Computed example of a mutant assay.
Amino acid sequence: MTKIQSFLRHGRHLRRAAGLTAAAVLAGGAAVGCSSSEAKTSDDSTKVTPVAAIAPSVPDRISIPAIDVDAKLDTVGLDADGVMETPPTDKPMEASWYRQGPTPGEKGAAAIAGHMDTAGTPKAVFYNVKNLKKDQEIKIHREDGTTAVFAVDSVETYKKSAFPTDKVYNKTDRSELRLITCGGELGKDRHWDSNVIAFAHLKGETKG
């Protein structure tokens, strides 16, 4: 089994990201995995209403039909050293929203992190994020009853030493989403050397 390492090994990326995402919030708005066995909450037949952005609401569930993900969302923040907390390893089939950034659907770049694997779970919640294709949907259910529906723009892999902080966390003029997990090559220390990042933009919302 592999031993999971922190998504952003040295922490400098998220120290800066905290300021960037805070700016995005004021303007109006970071893992490894497969799927859970719980019943899916989203209905593919539900009409998506095009919108540019949605009012803030805490996300509580993520659904990615193309890779069979339907998972509860927890939250992560920054630790005392200014480094993004790693999603709990005892909940490998759950993902975590970065709560110091925008909520998914708000204007700005929201971030959700999830494990690709853990020591006890070889295929965790974001194991197949690397296989996402352009225009496939990511659905984020929120506490206000709405679901923010995003379309994938690209999936990219970066060495952890070259994490693209500006591209991931900078202020944007539209509602965007980043899914962040581990990937690349497994080193001798049993740590992945890269981050896999899915970039997506808001397509619209569903209600009820």
Rank of each mutant, 00 (worst) to 15 (best):
T103R: 10
A200F: 07
D193K: 04
T206G: 00
D90S: 12
I197K: 00
L20R: 05
G145N: 10
H13C: 11
N170F: 01
S57C: 01
A200N: 04
G187K: 11
E94P: 00
V152D: 06
Y169Q: 08
P104N: 02
M93D: 07
M116W: 08
G28D: 08
N131W: 09
G204A: 11
L179N: 00
G11S: 05
I140A: 00
K188Q: 12
V83A: 13
F150G: 06
P50G: 01
H13N: 14
I4Q: 10
P56M: 02
A53Y: 02
P87E: 11
L186P: 03
V125P: 00
V51L: 10
S35H: 09
S161F: 04
E106I: 03
P104S: 07
T103L: 00
E143R: 12
I112T: 09
K3M: 03
G183E: 01
C34D: 14
R16Q: 14
I180Y: 02
D81C: 04
F163G: 01
P59K: 00
D43F: 06
K107S: 12
D144H: 06
D79M: 05
D68P: 01
P59S: 00
I112C: 13
K40I: 15
G105D: 05
H191V: 13
Y127W: 15
G204Q: 01
A80T: 10
L132Y: 03
